[in-house]
Design a protein around this nucleic acid. Structure first.
Lengths: 195, 195, 195, 195
DNA sequence: CATGAATGAGTCTTCATTCAT
DNA sequence: TATGAATGAAGACTCATTCAT
């Protein structure tokens, strides 16, 4: 079948276009305001065509969620034990940087977490991701404490919950500027550093 | 005006019933899944009756939001300067307690914050509330630092962002138990306490 | 029952108020846009109170129609045979005068005629009125022709249809000023007058 | 674009079907009684399909009005100066003929004129049409008078208002038969003809 | 007489989805 | 692959009317 590969590639591109548009739509109007018609119009295709690629709205939403979760996976989790304090700083700054660069991603993320509360499957996916994230931070904190970089009475579990909480709340902190975000990040570092 | 007082009271009760049901519906299905019909059914009244009290769905949602925001206002903000460390602990525990007692409130709150991103009016209301909250915490941190209870290098602003972030993220931390919440709270206190 | 008469009078006044408001509403928004709620609000009473006076919307509309038809009855139909030409002029001018003075009445009248097309009862009432009107004009034309005031070849029946048509169309002639109305009236008179 | 022409034609046909049905419904029940559901049922399509062609009820009404106005445009306005008297007769008879042939058109027209009183846009459209109509008649009357066919003291403007009024009132004259209409038409002609 | 509250029966409109071509 | 057309199921909202007080 000559050309079949090119077609397949084009198909993937189209799917990606649609997911892009859907994600943008969710960021703009929330899941509440997501309309497959609008997504199709944004891409410049017919609704029926969209349904050819994504049979149901749910499938489209799932594709958006999936892609975002995959993105999260790619959050750099460098070797935490070498220089824990540095790793912590880099990790926080990396996420703050992403927040500044692509706020839309966080808007959708927020919607996704809200939805997880009533969507068991989504809950499971996010939970699994969060576990990996928490493990990473916990390792950093434990290693840093054991190496004397962090306070001796630091509780890795508590600190992990605290830091993840802060990072997850970026969007809900309505007046959070990049600077105030860095202030908080600095405070975290000082707060965990051994005196 | 025969019976006007009793009638007025009953009217208010009915309104409250409707708002209750609506809040519950939002907690269950999100703004996305809110159906005035279901709310009316929950209260046991006709849809037209619901519209008698709240002309539009938007008005009903506004009433729910308004009531929740009013609830937030009542978060006890005790005198922060007397014993800052104790005030901080009490404040955090109060909110953790509410979270444990009425998780639904936080679910709706989460929805509300998500919505604020595309609703300027809502944004303004929440922002004003958040400002008051931040001011309170900032005062605690500054007072505690100046009194020597807290670390000398503590940045009140950064710490405030951090704590509010943690408290706001309670819901997004999918596997957060009450215990792990307390662990994080304890860590906060240790982290700010002077060595 | 002392005071019963005064009460009855007040009741009639209230009914009249309601009919007034209803007629005004019809003139403003047409039968299409008539809302009993609005009428009640206009009068300053509760809808239930309005329904006390007029059990159904249809009854209210009937009252409006009845009053207007009664008004039409009072169109002066002077003795047509004494000076037919003068009678014709006066009749036309009387109606043009009313049109100038109370355009709303004609707006409602127009609605009523449109409605008569699908309301047999209304049709009968209006038809009876129109017959009396046509008879009056026909008598004028016949008398004027026989007396030599009008053209010898004047057909009373045709002229009657023509004049009534013109008068009925006042409202449908969108750009009809008082002056142009008088021009047409003058033309009628010249057209029927014997050369 | 496979089948695009056939599809486009079919689409237009469907639109026409819907407008037909809507016009019929208005003629039957007035604007007051127009129900999109009934129109769809008449055509034999789903309500949603009707909304596919006409997004709102208002758009459907506009289409009906537009088509009728377009129809009016096509009223033959022959060269008025050659034989004005004949032109006048033909014009009047043409309209009387249409009235006899398609009374429904006039019923709707009546509704439309009533509505124009509270719809500025509609008012403008009808007014523009009426102006063209009046110009045509005025030219006929002026030419006929100057050519000696019509009375020397004929006022073209007054006569125009009169004739248009008569023609517009066809519907409001409840007991108007075709014959009585012709009587009036004949009377018009006699009334303007030079003695 | 008057009213606040309640309701049944609509009315328009929306939206995800399907299907023939 | 792509589309115009079609639809079922639901959605918010309206309105005349009723009833207990």
């Amino acid at each position: 079948m000559p050309g079949s590969r090119r077609t397949a590639v084009e198909g993937e591109q189209r799917r990606a276009q649609i997911v892009d548009a859907a994600q943008h739509a969710i960021a703009t109007a929330g899941f509440e305001g997501l309309r497959v018609r609008d997504v199709a119009a944004q891409v410049g295709i017919n609704i029926a065509t969209l349904h050819y690629y994504f049979p149901t709205k749910e499938a489209l939403v799932a594709a958006v969620v999936q892609r975002i979760v995959r993105t999260l996976d790619r959050v750099p989790l460098n070797d935490p034990v070498h220089d824990p304090r540095r790793m912590l700083i880099e990790h926080i700054q990396h996420i703050l940087g992403r927040f500044a660069a692509d706020r839309n991603l966080f808007v959708v993320l927020n919607e996704i977490y809200a939805r997880a509360d009533r969507d068991a499957e989504l809950h499971a996916v996010l939970l699994s991701n969060d576990h990996a994230w928490a493990d990473y931070l916990r390792t950093i904190f434990a290693a840093g404490r054991d190496a004397g970089q962090f306070r001796a009475d630091l509780d890795p579990d508590g600190a992990t919950v605290l830091v993840i909480g802060f990072l997850k709340s970026l969007l809900a902190q309505l007046d959070l500027t990049v600077e105030r975000g860095r202030l908080a990040a600095d405070e975290i570092v000082r707060a965990v550093t051994a005196p």
